[in-house]
Structure formats: C-alpha cells, structure tokens
Amino acid sequence: MKKTLRLLSLVFLSACSHSTENEETLQENEEAFPSHFSTETDKFINAVFGDQGGTIRGFDLGDPKIKIKDMESLSLIDEADSTLAYSFESKDFELVDINYKFNAQEKLDGVQVDIYLNEEGQTNEMYTAIRKYFTLKFGPAAGNEPKETWPVNGGGSVSIKAVNHKIDHGLQINYYKAS
C-alpha cells in the first residue's frame, strides 16, 4: 500500500512539474511573439496562408498537382509542367504571388510565397507576425534569425526572409521538401 501511495505521489509531482514547464514555455513564446498585431494583419495572414488546415492553404508537401489545381481558389496566372502560379491583391494594394513547385511525379515539392508590401514598416510588422504564426502552427524554429526554419507536414521546412530595398519591400517565404 505504501509503495502504491509513493508511486502515485511521484506521478502527481512529475505531472505538476511538466505543467509548470509547459506554462513557462508558453509564457516565453508569448513574450517572444507579442499578440498586439492588428486585426488587418491577422486577416492578411489568413488570406495568404489560408485557414483550411494543411501546411499552406489546405495543402501539404507531397500532394498531387491536380489536387492543388482543382482546389486553389486564387487567380491562376501561370501554369507549366513543374509550376502553378497564383496571385492576389489585398484591399490595401499589397500583392501576393504563390508559386507551387512540382517534381517529375507531379507531387508538390515546394512553395514560394512573395509578399509585396507598400512600406518598409509593414515588412517588419508582417515578418514578426508570420514568425509568430509559424511558431504557433509548426512549433519552435530551428536556427536563429534570419536563418530560422520551421518543420512542416510532408517532411519539409519553411523559412522566411525580409526584403527591404529602395523601392521593394516585402517578404519571401519558402516551403521545401527535405533533401
């Protein structure tokens, strides 16, 4: 009987310490990624990445080309054997290009998302918001800024890069299969 009580006590204490560790990790994530982004930023992120599940816009790396062609709701701007390119413009005139890349078996092998923003300040806010989105969706990033990567469904990774030139402002996001 005493052994059973000791065992139960150890299990209880162990569970309590894991709960504290999880709460500390959650608190660290909230501090690292502030939640004060505008509703417009959240809407824009949903428009880009979709809310249908999957890795991006309801799709996972390895999905067949025909599935993406049949289900993608954006405007198709280019189609080739190894790519499908889609584009849309936000109400604030930000432009988003999404290029799905396929291997010889017509399976999704990578996705490049180019987000063209109007101002340099938008790039910094959007970069931080997308980092938070990736961390919440995929877990902690490997590596350090600016070379962070997040693991994604289908055995791949995603990375983000800020682009700030004299006239170009935006982000480039790359999903790719592990080699």
Rank of each mutant, 00 (worst) to 15 (best):
K2C: 03
K2W: 13
K2F: 14
R6S: 09
L7S: 13
L10F: 09
V11R: 15
S17N: 05
E21W: 12
N22E: 05
E28I: 05
E28P: 01
E28M: 05
E30A: 10
E30P: 00
S35K: 04
S35R: 04
H36E: 12
F37S: 12
S38A: 06
T41P: 04
D42V: 15
D42P: 03
D42I: 15
I45L: 06
V48C: 03
G50P: 06
G50W: 06
D51R: 12
G53T: 08
T55P: 00
I56R: 06
G58W: 13
G58H: 10
F59S: 01
D60R: 06
L61E: 08
L61T: 08
K65H: 06
K67T: 08
M71A: 09
S73I: 04
L74G: 00
S75P: 11
S75E: 13
D78F: 11
A80G: 14
T83C: 07
T83N: 09
T83V: 13
A85M: 13
A85H: 07
S87V: 05
E89C: 00
E89N: 11
S90K: 01
S90H: 03
K91C: 00
K91E: 13
D92P: 03
F93P: 00
E94D: 13
L95H: 15
L95V: 15
L95R: 15
L95C: 05
V96E: 08
D97R: 15
D97L: 14
I98R: 05
F102C: 03
A104G: 08
Q105V: 07
E106L: 04
L108E: 02
L108K: 07
L108S: 05
D109S: 14
V113K: 05
D114T: 15
D114K: 15
I115A: 08
L117I: 04
L117K: 09
L117S: 09
E120Q: 14
E120F: 09
G121Y: 11
G121V: 12
N124P: 00
M126A: 06
Y127K: 11
T128M: 11
R131N: 13
R131E: 14
Y133E: 13
F134S: 03
T135Y: 04
K137D: 04
F138A: 08
G139W: 01
G139Q: 03
G139M: 02
P140M: 02
P140L: 11
A142M: 10
A142W: 02
G143H: 01
N144R: 00
E145L: 10
W150R: 09
W150Q: 04
W150E: 05
P151T: 12
G156R: 02
V158P: 00
V158R: 03
S159P: 02
S159C: 02
I160D: 02
I160M: 06
K161M: 12
A162E: 05
K166R: 08
I167N: 13
H169C: 03
L171V: 07
N174T: 15
N174L: 09
Y176C: 01
S179I: 06
